[in-house]
Nucleic acid binder design. Structure first.
Length: 907
DNA sequence: CACACGTTT
DNA sequence: ACGTGAAACGTGTGT
């Protein structure tokens, strides 16, 4: 019997309320409505969410039959009966209504029957079909956002109600309805609704009867008709009066709430066979909607998206498959087969690890579509002529992905790559800083090219990462990458041009990538011995502190666990929690510093400080020192930050301690690589405020800088109305400094108050005075926010661009954050532009002067050099001169330099 | 993998 | 009333 049931499983039918889901989909993503707009200006947020629903829920469900029902129009038999039916609904926003035709097309392309019936609502189509199918032995599932549909639940009919947007569904079967309606049957829901009414569908029910009473009455009398048959039996009271008065309304409302199961639908169940997505035709549809993620997914599943090499647009979607990549595999006499490349080539080298300073190359490809691509595993081929010569020939332009990594790699083989013209990674980043994936496949997809898979898809990730042994698979992937490199530069150049970023790319970022490569490859020497000694010392202090802390606490616990520490302090020891985090008590410095008088807290603060130094800076640093040269070789990431700054990893040399003496000592471990060199550090003074003074045009701030005043003191004088010439109270200067910083970040009175320890009211007055004293800054802030709101992005002085889709967010916090970003990015980003130009010019000057000085590090407003003692004098003159003339502002740039035997001493 | 925390400019 | 200053990276805990 059991076996028979398994073999004879009922066919499944999925019925979807299209309108209801479309509304849910639209409002689920209403915050992002302006972010989802395709190239034709069509809003696509509901389409995106609806598509996710079709892919994420319908496809896995894989019904035998499926139907999406739509409302045909505004007038139905219900509006004939009751003029005001759904009469209080807001007009459908145009952003949604324009999506309906596409929603229907999308449904059809997913292999689902789409249907509407004049004079009826989607509910009635579904009700009719559900009951019909049930009678014919189907298992029916209904998906809707409308709880009224629960009335259709039956032995073989489930109703799934959308919960969160359209991505989560609540399953309702007979048992669920029984539970929710306190023992009532689905059919009785219309009776409850009839009494209680419905504000969203705008039918009245009985005035004064709510859901609780309605359920109680229907439980007692089974239905509205029966209730009124027995109305005389009711106790004479207010409730009875209401029911008597509302009889007509109740009966009409019940009628409106009742979903029809006899609508004159014109299809047969057989018409509803679910056929699954129509891949061939859904691709152009997705392309029209700019559904990049969907297209990427399809590409990764092996569907041919057909952006073929010919570039012929009309062929793009029609072409059934792409031309095979012309691969040239080398055999015994490799060089014979290598074409003579003279113009442009794609060039890509695959590494076995992300750290290109040490990774082993495991494959390469170079060439072009016309002459073919030479592909192989053994990189030695690249190190001998004729290939080596070609790689060093600036006239052969290379199209690459990550020029910096490639350049560093080849320095290892003493090859200086030339002609690195097109770096897809860098170009994509400049066009949109959010396109900062480190994967060629992913970036290609962001730029509408779908034939190259992501590395993760081909190689796997984490422990499963493996370069395929199969030449066919591996070389094909490399081939697709090379082809992407052939196609993408033209598209990206166009985009750069559209954004006036050609100069930024060609003359700043691209040459900078080579400068960075040389800095990384040079590296900075680390005195490991010194670090080890510091580590031992710190370990001792830690274990002392640890014992004392345990003693105070009365037992051992993990001091490094905020959770355990919270229990000790705020439960066992009974101190009052000052602040909470999402997960429990906060134990941050901010909190602990307010509890300084407690001995254990003081020790915990010290423990934290030392533990941080030991783990992050002593042990962390030692882990990444290269055995071969006792140096650390950081990786500057040029394509990550949203503002144009660099970032530094493995190790991060941009956050080496300096503020507190204990941590600052770490800098003693950074030393010159040779005994006849010293380290020189040159840093911009107040670069961000100078940039602000320039771009805002504020005359008062400009005057302060032009007179070489102490800007924080000058600000203090202004906001606290202090007389000229008199000494500034250090505390006032401190506050003024905090305000200056705050302004750069787009501060609130609350934030400033917290920061400098004054009342919020005082903070507000300070900010108001600040803006009154520096009116140009106030004006500029307002202007830049307006600009961002209108254009959706802000720019730096060098046309670096950051998109800010959240300027129109409904959520106050999200929007405010975008507004602060609109102010901060041009400031921080223009400062980044300036130091990047300075780096290029410094490097050029060092080369043309034939100096042995090497630029080692950049820390946002500071450059660190290794300088032979013989060159010290010239460097102290040359570097500040080059740095302060990097860009001409309306205020001077000021640079100071310091030298020392270690980084610590160069202060 | 997310969170809390702490370090820099 | 909301909730509250920008940009980053690394370590450790805990799920």
């Amino acid at each position: 019997m059991a076996e028979r049931e398994m073999n004879m499983a009922k066919p499944t039918l999925l019925l979807i309320d299209g309108n209801s889901l479309a509304f849910r989909a639209f409002y689920a993503m209403i915050n992002q409505v302006e972010r989802f707009v395709n190239h034709e200006g069509l809003h696509t947020n509901a389409l995106v969410a609806f598509n996710n629903f079709l892919d994420g829920i319908v496809e896995p469900f894989d019904p035998d039959y499926a139907l999406v029902a739509w409302d045909a129009g505004k007038t139905t038999f219900r509006t004939d009966k009751y003029d005001d039916y759904k009469g209080n609904r807001d007009k459908t926003p145009s952003e949604l209504s324009e999506q309906f035709p596409y929603l229907r097309e999308m449904v059809t392309l997913h292999g689902i029957y789409s249907y509407e019936l004049p004079n009826y609502e989607a509910d009635d189509i579904i009700g009719t079909t559900a009951k019909d199918a049930q009678a014919k032995g189907f298992d029916v599932t209904i998906v809707t956002g409308d709880r009224d549909m629960l009335q259709l639940v039956d032995e073989h009919i489930e109703v799934w109600i959308t919960k969160k947007g359209v991505s989560e569904l609540e399953h309702n079967d007979l048992a669920m309805v029984d539970e929710k309606y306190d023992g009532l049957t689905p059919a009785q829901i219309v009776d409850v609704k009839g009494l209680q009414g419905d504000t969203s569908d705008n039918y009245p029910g009985v005035a004064g009867i709510g859901p609780k009473t309605a359920i109680k009455l229907i439980k007692a009398y089974h239905s509205i008709p029966e209730l009124y048959e027995h109305i005389d039996e009711l106790k004479a009271n207010k409730q009875k009066e209401k029911l008597v008065n509302g009889e007509a309304d109740a009966k009409m409302s019940r009628d409106l709430a009742r979903i029809r199961t006899d609508a004159p639908v014109e299809f047969e169940l057989d018409d509803l066979k679910y056929t699954g997505p129509d891949y061939e035709n859904i691709i152009p549809f997705y392309q029209q909607l700019d559904f990049k993620q969907q297209l990427a997914k399809l590409a990764n599943q092996g569907h041919v998206l057909g952006a073929s090499i010919s570039g012929d647009a009309s062929e793009e979607t029609a072409a059934p498959s792409t031309t095979p990549v012309p691969l040239i595999r080398l055999s015994e006499d490799p060089t014979d087969l290598i074409p003579d490349y003279t113009d442009e080539i794609s060039f890509y080298v695959e590494l076995d690890d992300a750290d290109y300073h040490t990774a082993a190359p495991v494959g390469f490809i170079f060439g072009n579509e016309a002459q073919g691509y030479v592909v192989g595993r053994d990189i030695d081929v690249l190190l001998i002529d004729p290939v080596k010569t070609m790689l060093e020939n600036a006239d052969v332009k290379k199209r690459v992905f990550n020029a910096k990594a490639l350049y560093v790699l080849f320095l290892r083989y003493e090859v200086e790559l030339q002609g690195l013209e097109y770096d897809i990674l860098l170009m994509s980043y400049l066009v949109d800083t959010n396109d900062n994936s480190n994967d060629l496949g992913a970036l290609a997809q962001q730029n509408d090219y779908y034939d190259v898979q992501t590395d993760e898809a081909v190689y796997g990730k984490g422990v499963k990462f493996e370069i395929p042994e199969d030449d066919q698979i591996f070389f094909e992937h490399l081939g697709q990458k090379a082809r992407a490199l052939e196609i993408l530069p033209a598209r990206l150049l166009q985009k750069l041009d559209d954004r006036e970023q050609t100069d930024l790319y060609k003359n700043m970022e691209l040459p900078l990538s080579i400068v960075l490569a040389e800095m990384e490859a040079t590296g900075i020497k680390v005195d490991s011995q010194r670090l080890l000694m510091m580590g031992n010392d710190l370990a001792e202090r830690l274990s002392d502190l640890e014992q004392k802390i345990y003693q105070e606490a009365g037992h051992e616990f993990n001091i490094q666990s905020p959770k355990q520490l919270g229990v000790v302090l705020f439960e066992e020891m009974g101190y009052k929690p000052i602040k909470k985090t999402k997960t429990g008590y906060s134990t941050s410095v901010e909190v602990l510093e307010q509890m300084q008088d407690v001995p254990i807290v003081k020790m915990i603060l010290e423990y934290r400080q030392i533990a941080k130094i030991k783990s992050t800076y002593v042990e962390g640093l030692l882990r990444v020192v290269h055995g071969s040269d006792s140096k650390v070789h950081t990786h500057y990431i040029q394509t990550l930050t949203q503002t144009g700054r660099l970032s530094s990893t493995d190790p991060n040399l941009q956050n080496i301690p300096v503020r507190l003496e204990e941590g600052r000592l770490i800098r003693q471990a950074f030393v010159p690589s040779s005994s006849d060199c010293v380290l020189v550090s040159s840093d911009y003074s107040q670069i961000e405020l100078r940039v602000l003074a320039h771009i805002s045009g504020d005359k008062n701030m400009q005057a302060a800088f032009n007179a070489d005043e102490d800007i924080h003191a000058a600000t203090a004088r202004r906001i606290f109305n202090l007389p000229e010439g008199e000494d500034i109270d250090p505390n006032m200067r401190r506050k003024a400094k905090a305000v200056n910083f705050g302004i750069v970040y787009g501060i609130s009175d609350f934030g400033l108050a917290k920061n400098i320890g004054v009342s919020r009211k005082e903070a507000k007055e300070i900010i108001d005075t600040y803006f009154a004293e520096y009116p140009g800054i106030k004006q500029w802030s307002e202007n830049i926010i307006d600009f961002a709101r209108e254009n959706g992005y802000v720019e730096t002085m060098a046309h670096r661009r950051r998109y800010l889709p959240d300027m129109h967010a409904k959520n106050f916090n999200v929007r405010s954050f975008a507004e602060r970003t609109a102010m901060n990015t041009p400031i921080q980003g223009s400062a980044a532009d300036i130091i990047k130009i300075a780096m290029l010019n410094v490097q050029k000057a060092l080369e043309t002067e034939g100096l042995k000085t090497r630029m080692l590090l950049q820390v946002h407003d500071e450059l660190i050099f290794e300088v032979p003692k013989a060159e010290l004098e010239i460097i102290h003159e040359l570097v500040p001169k080059v740095m302060d003339s990097a860009m001409a502002l309306d205020v001077p740039l000021k640079v100071s330099s310091h030298e020392g035997a270690t980084w610590y001493d160069a202060k």
